[in-house]
Computed example of a mutant assay.
Amino acid sequence: MPQIVLIHYGELALKRGNRAYFEKRLIRNIKDSLRDLGRVRMQRLFGRFLLETDEIPWPALQERLSQVFGISSFAPVAVGPLTWEGLLDATKKVLPEGERLSFGVRAKKADERWSRGRSETERDLGAWIQERTGWSVNLRQPDVWVRAEVANGRVIVSARRYPGRRGLPVGVSGRALALLSGGIDSPVAAWMMQSRGLHLSFVHFHSAPYTTRRSQEKVKDLARRLLCYQPSLRLHMVPFADLQQSIVTRTPEAYRVILYRRFMMRIANRIAHEDGAGALVSGESLGQVASQTLTNIHTVDEASELTVLRPLVGLDKETIIRRAQDIGTFEISIEPHDDCCSFLMPHRPVTKTKPGELERVEEDLDVAGLVNGCLENISTETFRLGRADIE
């Protein structure tokens, strides 16, 4: 028996003149997210889509659809001809098993060939359901909402609706490069920008061989987790230890972390240019640590030609943790690992800096040579949803 799903989107409906572009992108993303599971057929209705598949079981379909940005809700449905008997037959197929349930009926009419009005359809269908099941009517908070739509020469009936991730389809807002550290914050920042339609690639800075291999594998695990929301992504791994050693031996200790961050921005800008990314994404939260004060963030940004997006800047740690738990990155993030910024950390990092101050410190460094040295040894991997192998 084929699975038929009615998919609703939210803010895409507000796009007016370019709604078709957003709809096409969402359809493409849905198909991409299901490609490894089986084929689907999709039809555009007004303000929603109808998906049909003969190959994908409902549990797998439900899991994948719940992770596609742009979907506000979705429901398994039964479709019937534009007759009263067709409506009853479709309703039979979707009613759940259970005794002593309460229910309500909501109907929409968008086809003038349907002889009953909306209220009459709700009343008559409700009476039929009550007679058939013995359930009680509850129009405030029922156990089951039976939703019947009459449109396009057919009836569409559902009895279960599942929430989607909402937001915008990944890709409609362009491309960006996200800095992925392995901690709690950066995966959440990336997820939040995916939800606003950015297609992301990722960069991770590591201090091998002075840090363990597990820290790099952990970042790959986080990248695989974020594949749930974006069916393919690139992860760039940048060796950073030699650059850090140069900073340690040639600059004052208190400036180390800010210098690390400024060089990360320079390197990330070069990678973003190669990836066609128009912005960087970073996981700072204002005031959380010494490098994330307002003046230090400004000093770091001065080393970047691209805009740096910081979606967590106004969130506290508890809020970020809750979001990490919700999206499935928290348990990975809290695994022990060696972070590159914790390697050769200063005892008392500076909390207030100015760009000119750091530029003077950097005069003792071969900035271009250090950046190029990191880029020469970069490694890049591509991850694809549903594939165990990495390209």
Rank of each mutant, 00 (worst) to 15 (best):
Q62K: 15
A268H: 06
Y255L: 00
N18F: 00
I7G: 04
F383I: 04
A268R: 09
V238Y: 06
R154A: 12
S158E: 12
R132S: 13
N18D: 05
T53D: 05
S333F: 02
F330L: 10
A107L: 10
G183L: 06
E11H: 06
Q216A: 14
A290G: 11
D366K: 10
S102K: 14
F202A: 06
V79M: 04
Q43C: 00
N29T: 04
E381A: 11
I327N: 04
A13L: 11
E381H: 11
G10K: 02
T307L: 15
A388P: 00
L14D: 03
G134L: 07
M192Y: 07
D364C: 01
E112L: 11
L280W: 06
G164S: 04
F383V: 03
L198F: 15
W145C: 08
E120G: 07
W145M: 12
S73I: 02
K15L: 03
A127N: 13
P336V: 04
P169A: 13
G70W: 03
T382I: 12
E363Q: 15
L222K: 06
W128S: 06
G287F: 09
K108S: 13
V248A: 15
I71Q: 07
V281M: 07
R16H: 13
R154N: 00
Q244S: 12
V94W: 11
R322G: 12
A190E: 04
R41H: 09
I271K: 09
L200V: 03
H206G: 05
P209C: 13
C340T: 00
L344R: 14
I327R: 05
L222D: 03
S173C: 08
S215P: 05
V219G: 04
F46W: 14
P209K: 13
R387A: 11
C228D: 15
L358P: 01
G328A: 05
R261E: 02
A127L: 09
G183P: 08
I247F: 07
L61N: 08
A159L: 09
R19G: 05
E217N: 10
I334L: 08
R161K: 14
G117H: 08
S158R: 04
